[in-house]
Design a protein around this nucleic acid. Structure first.
Lengths: 237, 237
DNA sequence: CGAGCTCTTGACACCAATCAATCCGGGTGG
DNA sequence: CCACCCGGATTGATTGGTGTCAAGAGCTCG
């Protein structure tokens, strides 16, 4: 999990590190990236990595754990913007406003790589591959939130959520079939813009149809194909 | 949004040009940017600047006119992703997938600046200010779509739409009070995830309450403060 | 073992979609 | 110049999907 052994990868779960290494980049720049990374954690459930209106100074890659980002509107109503799994990057939406537009709330004990943004931005100027990776990350985040923005039925949203999570677990080297939904139904509902009761009803309905197996926060995908069919209008290609 | 330029502006409405000039950048790089820009147009209403699945080669700044981006899902149902006014940039969401994820449909006679992405990306490596501007544009787009993703009542969404449009018209040097909604109610509804009938009802209701004056596609904001109050939960700070 | 949650399940209400009729404005052709 | 036509816009009646409220069950933690 931390930088050990194999000199080629100094941090096995950092998105940046991986892409740069895989690009076979020059050692000087790589060393600079290494110096730039700061390992932080552990954070416990309920702690915040950063808060709304904190000045934007760094982005974070999840090394292990689970995080949600939430924005709180003027009435104090929370809005979950996203969940972040190991290997994913948090904080990019702070670039333009120059402060974080949301809180990053840790949902289970978590570890991170911290990248000072001015530093990584400067480094990106000399490492086109890194710059490109930053662009891609931003653009990817864009694609994800525009999925949320679509007007789809509750069932389609739920299916799309599960399929997306499955894919991302897979990309992080975890099982694509056995998902651990270590966030409350309330958070899921808030993220999908559904009432938590609706989330419950949808999950039991999916269980009754044999699409998934449910044990509390453990979910096993039994019929991935059917799920994808349900979700296909939301995942629009 | 952009630190205002003082001297030479060789393309009065191009977001990139403006930021680079205002940064007082060296003339060599500036020349390169100049060479890189390609003026295209006019395009007539209904024509497409690019289509879904076209390979991602360039981004476009609107010089004049109005454009919508729409994605078509598997069932053939259209989804309006955004409207673009003079000075704004289209196509950034194609970076990650490396092809455009939507069609760019011209709504009224329009002109553009075309920037080859490989070229501008390379140039950004040598012009930190340009790189930063690209990051900002992406991050800004992110903020905009996450507004759409919120679960707000139809009235709040409508108000937020008008306020946003007013701000953007203002940023482009147009009147903030007199908006020209040169897109159909159907497009507005599709963008806001509302039925066009609901858009109609909301606008008449706002007219009856004295918030706006309506004359077909011309809209005058009479009570901007009230509109902002309505929209404030969607524009979350 | 109780306190305080999350989660589930049911009954009901309500907002916005749908269906339908009409009106308006702009372009076309006689 | 007017009549016609057609897509967009408005307005009304009805429906349905989700939210809200409420009660109870299951967990976890002190």
């Amino acid at each position: 999990m931390v930088d050990d052994g194999d000199e080629v990868r100094f941090c096995s779960t950092c998105a940046f590190s991986n892409v740069c290494i895989s690009a076979g980049y020059d050692k000087v720049a790589l060393g600079e990236l290494h110096v730039l990374v700061e390992h932080v954690g552990p954070f416990r459930a309920g702690e915040r990595l950063f808060r709304t209106r904190d000045p934007f100074k760094a982005i974070y890659a999840v090394r292990g754990g689970l995080v949600k980002t939430v924005s709180v509107d003027v009435d104090g109503k929370e809005q979950v913007l996203g969940f972040y799994l190991p290997g994913e990057v948090i904080g990019l939406n702070g670039i333009y406003p120059e402060h974080y537009p949301c809180d990053a709330v840790v949902l289970e004990t978590s570890y991170f790589c911290r990248f000072s943004f001015p530093a990584i931005s400067a480094l990106a100027s000399r490492m086109p591959k890194l710059q490109q990776q930053l662009f891609r990350l931003l653009s990817k985040e864009l694609a994800l939130t525009s999925m949320l923005a679509g007007d789809h039925s509750a069932e389609v949203r739920m299916a799309a959520f599960l399929v997306d999570l499955s894919d991302r677990f897979g990309a992080s080297g975890f099982s694509e079939r056995h998902l651990i939904l270590n966030m409350s139904r309330i958070d899921i509902g808030n993220y999908l813009r559904l009432a938590s009761e609706t989330v419950s009803r949808l999950l039991t309905h999916m269980r009754e149809r044999g699409l998934v197996r449910l044990e509390g926060r453990q979910l096993e995908i039994l019929d991935g194909k059917a799920l994808r069919t349900l979700a296909r209008s939301a995942l629009e290609h």
